[in-house]
């Protein structure tokens, strides 16, 4: 168990971490937009339903949601319907989509009514107004809070180990059984690098969108 072997095992864990991270992001970003439309719906029963759902998902600890998704279907049906990995991803996607949806909602509602009206009197359809005029302004406004959420997501992936997924923290903890504590602290190097790259990426996007003020 030399340094390189341990680094290699941690990298294997990091691979799981990255997979949970990437899948959650790819699926939760569009799902969050759909949920935000639901909570902004003029059809009251739908908006109340969606808001209640968001309240529950944001209210219950994510760790519990991971456990529930993996174990509860098994208890009820007698056999698990989701693999460990897919229940983690499902729980993360639902949870993060709800947080994203509130950020989207805040962004969308901050755009002035005049932008919609200008598009409307120019004969654009509602879809065109949203995708050609509103969305890009929303993206610019929500970039900073989104960066926060995405960075939190990197570290939340560690929750996956409650159902025995060997992500990077669990990979390091396995060495604690051999009396090695330092691999656990060593993981923070990987997290810092990961978050560092994301920070650079987000500031690049911010610069990209800096060419106009709204």
């Amino acid at each position: 168990m030399n340094f390189w072997n341990i680094t290699l095992s941690l990298l294997e864990g990091l691979e799981k971490t990255c997979m949970i991270f990437a899948l959650t992001l790819v699926l939760a970003l569009p799902l969050g937009l759909i949920i935000s439309f639901g909570s902004m719906s003029k059809f009251k029963p739908l908006s109340y339903l969606v808001k209640t759902f968001v309240w529950i998902i944001r209210g219950v600890p994510l760790m519990l949601q991971v456990i529930i998704l993996f174990y509860v279907p098994g208890f009820i049906l007698g056999y698990p319907i989701l693999s460990r990995f897919s229940s983690v991803v499902a729980a993360f996607v639902i949870n993060y989509a709800c947080y994203f949806s509130e950020i989207y909602r805040g962004g969308i509602e901050s755009i002035s009514k005049g932008q919609y009206e200008a598009g409307q009197v120019l004969g654009m359809t509602k879809t065109q107004v949203f995708f050609k005029i509103i969305l890009m302004q929303v993206v610019k406004r929500i970039l900073a809070p989104m960066a926060n959420e995405v960075i939190t997501l990197v570290k939340d992936t560690a929750l996956a180990r409650v159902i025995m997924i060997v992500e990077i923290i669990q990979a390091a903890q396995n060495f604690a059984g051999y009396g090695l504590m330092w691999p656990l602290f060593y993981t923070s190097v990987f997290y810092l690098a990961f978050v560092g790259i994301l920070t650079l990426l987000f500031s690049y996007f911010e610069k990209k969108l800096d060419y106009y003020k709204s």
Binding site: S112, G114, Q115, E117, A118, G119, Q120, V121, L122, G123, M124, Q128, K132, I133, M136, Q137, K140, Y212, K213, S214
Partner: peptide, 29 residues
Amino acid sequence: QLNFGLVFQSFNLFPQYTALENVTLAPKL
């Protein structure tokens, strides 16, 4: 709506587009 044009008190230009793009956006769509 397309029978009419409306100029707003508060302009309501689309901030992410240039002056030219503001003018061409709707006709192109």
